[in-house]
Design a binder for these strands. Structure first.
Lengths: 331, 331
DNA sequence: AATTAAAATGTAACCGTTTACAATATGCTA
DNA sequence: TAGCATATTGTAAACGGTTACATTTTAATT
C-alpha cells in the first residue's frame, strides 16, 4: 500500500539501517549514501510512519492539553506558552476538549495511558483531587490554571487568595466599605480561594462580612447581569463589586448601565482574567491579570522534565498576578 | 518497565491472543478466560499500548483539526459538531493551532503524513489551493469554514456570496442606498466572496458601486473602529455598514457611539459570525449566522467516509446560512 | 605492502499489538 | 463409544521503524 523504509532502501540500494541513519541525521554515513537516500525519498514521496518509530522508541514527543472548551479565550494564551516550551524541546502540543464532562476528561486521559502522548496537562480539571493524585503517581500529568486541594500532582497556577485579596484591598483603599462579590456556585478551588481573599481583605480592614454581598452564579455573562441587578436592588446596595471573571464583570456592567448607574463613579466593577474584551467594552474593565503564557510555558517545561527523568516533581508553583486598572474602577 | 499484554497473559495463564480477544470483545472466548483476563488486567493495572495496536492495524481512529488560533470562539462550535460526528464513528478529535503560520500548518499536516492521525480538517487554511490540492490527492484532508478557488479537496462551508448578498439586500430593503462594507486586506476567499455578494446586491438594485465605501482592514476590533471612523468621516457618509466579522462590527459600533451616532437609526451595522458577544454587546448586533456545529458534523462525517473507502469525495458542500436581526439594524 | 584503526554498512532483534492459521478441547449424533 | 462439527485456545507472523552488534570498506601508519 503505502511506501515504507524498505522501499526507500531498495530504491537507494542500501539497507534500511542506512536509510534510518540518513533520515535521523546520524553520523558516519557517506555523502553518497545520503544523496542516494534523499533522492529515493523524494522520488517515492516517502514520509516515515511514526507509529513504527514511536513504538520502537516508546515515546511520541507529544503532549496533550485537556481543556473544558474553546469558549474561554484565555486558554489561547496558555496554549501559546505551552507550545513555545514544547517546540523548544522538540515536542508538539495537541488539544482536546472535555465540554465540562469529567467522564470525557477521563476518556481523554486514556490517550496518556495508552501511550498515544507522553504527557497531559489539565487546564482547570473537572476530575477530583483524589483521582488525579492517583493517576499522577504513575503518569506524567500536570495541572494548570487551577489547583486542587490535597492533590499530589505537578501544578502551575497563581495565588488566587492573594489575587482576590489584592483586588478587594484596592477597592478598600479607594475608600469603599460596601464591597460585594459575584462568585460561582460550583466550588472550584480558584473560586474558593478568591472568596477567601475577599474575606481576608475585609477582615484585615475591620469590615464585617455581609452574607448578602456574596452572590453565587457561574462564570458567564448572565450571572453578572442577574448578580449585579440583585446586589444593586438591596436596601443597602454595595458601591463596588468584585467579579469572579471578566465575562461576569461585563454582565454586571451591562446591568449597572441599564440601571443608570455611572460605572467607575456610583459603582466600581472589578473583573478577573483580562480577556481581550475587557478593554474593548466601554467602560474599560479593571481586572486581575494572570500570566497565561508564562503559566503555559512553565507547566510544559516542568512536565517535560518529569517525562525525561524518573524522579517526579509534583509540587505546586504559584506565579505572580497583577492588577490592571481601568475605567470601571474610576482609573 | 511498563506492563504489556504478555504480562497479562502470563498472569491470567492464557495466551496473548486470548487476552487480545477479551480486550476487544471478540466472540468465541470462554467465560473462564474472560474472568481470568479481566482479573489480571485489574490486578496489574494494564492498559493497552495503542502504538502497538495502531501500527498493527494501520489506523489511529483519530482526526486532527487544524485551526489558526483559539481566539476566534466560533471554532468552538465547529469543534463540537466535529466531535459529535467523530464519536459516533468511534473516532477522537484532536486540535492543533497554527498561529496563522502556513509553515506551522504544514508541520501539523505532518501528523497526517506520518500516520499519527487518520485524517485532518483545516479550519480556514492558510496554505494555498495548489499545495492543498496536491496533498489531498493522497491524503484524507478536508477544509471547513472556507473554500479555496480551484482546490480539489473535500470542502464544507457556506455560500459566502449569497450570505453577503443577503445581508446587503436586507439593508437595501430597508431603504438604504449608501451602504459601505468593511472587508479584509488579506484576500481570503470568504472575504472575496462576501465582497462579491455586496457588489451583486448593489448592482441588482441599480446602485452604483462606490470605491470609497469599501474599507480594508482585518478581522479584529480595531479595524472596525478605524473603518467606521473613516467611513463616517466622508463628505457623503454611508447610512449602513456591512462588516466582515462581528468583532469588526463591534469595533464599528464603538466608533459610531463615540461619534454620537444612534445605531439602528442614524447608522445601521451588520456583522458576520453571530459570536456570543454579538448579543451581549449593547446595542445587540444584527449578523449572519453560519451553521457551525452542522459544518463540523458534516465535514467529519464525509472525511470519515473518505477514510474508510478508497474512493475520495473531494467535492464542495455549501450549507445554508441565516440572518439574525437585532437592534443594530433597528429591529 | 602489511597492519591497524576508523568509517560505513548490513543483519536481525525488538517495541506491543492483532490475527491468520493450526491445534486442541468440547459437545453432539448415531 | 467412535466420529464429526464446533468452540476455544495457542503459535507465530506481520505492522514499520530503530539500533546493538557484526561485518565490510576505506584511510592512515609503518
Amino acid at each position: 500500500m503505502s511506501v515504507t523504509i524498505k522501499d526507500v532502501a531498495r530504491a537507494a540500494d542500501v539497507s534500511v539501517a542506512t536509510v534510518s541513519r540518513v533520515l535521523n541525521k546520524k553520523p558516519n554515513v557517506s555523502p553518497d549514501a545520503v544523496r542516494a537516500v534523499e533522492a529515493a525519498v523524494d522520488e517515492l514521496g516517502y514520509s516515515p510512519n511514526f507509529l513504527g518509530r514511536d513504538l520502537r522508541k516508546s515515546e511520541t514527543k507529544r503532549i496533550l492539553a485537556i481543556i473544558a472548551s474553546m469558549r474561554h479565550s484565555f486558554y489561547s494564551d496558555v496554549l501559546i506558552g505551552m507550545e513555545q516550551a514544547a517546540i523548544a524541546e522538540g515536542y508538539d502540543v495537541l488539544v482536546a476538549t472535555t465540554h465540562d464532562d469529567p467522564a470525557h476528561e477521563m476518556r481523554l486521559l486514556g490517550m496518556l495511558f495508552s501511550r498515544s502522548v507522553d504527557g497531559a496537562v489539565l487546564l482547570a480539571p473537572k476530575l477530583d483531587a483524589k483521582t488525579i493524585s492517583g493517576l499522577a503517581e504513575n503518569h506524567n500529568i500536570a495541572i494548570c490554571l487551577e489547583r486542587l486541594e490535597n492533590c499530589k500532582a505537578l501544578t502551575v497556577t497563581i495565588d488566587n487568595v492573594r489575587a482576590g485579596k489584592d483586588a478587594v484591598s484596592y477597592l478598600l483603599g479607594k475608600g469603599h466599605k460596601k464591597i460585594a462579590m459575584i462568585s460561582t456556585e460550583i466550588r472550584t478551588q480558584s473560586s474558593i480561594d478568591r472568596e477567601e481573599g475577599y474575606r481576608r481583605a475585609l477582615k484585615e480592614n475591620g469590615i464585617q462580612f455581609n452574607e448578602q454581598y456574596l452572590y453565587y452564579g457561574d462564570y458567564d455573562n448572565e450571572s453578572g447581569v442577574s448578580g449585579c441587578a440583585a446586589l444593586l436592588g438591596l436596601k443597602n446596595p454595595p458601591t463596588a463589586i468584585f467579579c469572579i471573571s471578566d465575562m461576569v464583570a461585563i454582565g454586571a456592567m451591562n446591568a449597572a448601565i441599564k440601571l443608570r448607574r455611572k460605572i467607575g463613579k456610583d459603582i466600581m466593577i472589578f473583573g478577573f482574567d483580562n480577556i481581550s474584551f475587557s478593554r474593548i467594552f466601554s467602560p474599560h474593565l479593571s481586572t486581575v491579570e494572570q500570566p497565561c503564557i508564562l503559566q503555559g510555558r512553565i507547566v510544559v517545561e516542568k512536565l517535560i522534565r518529569n517525562i525525561k527523568s524518573d524522579a517526579r516533581d509534583n509540587k505546586l508553583y504559584m506565579l505572580p498576578h497583577s492588577l490592571i486598572l481601568r475605567e470601571s474602577t474610576g482609573d
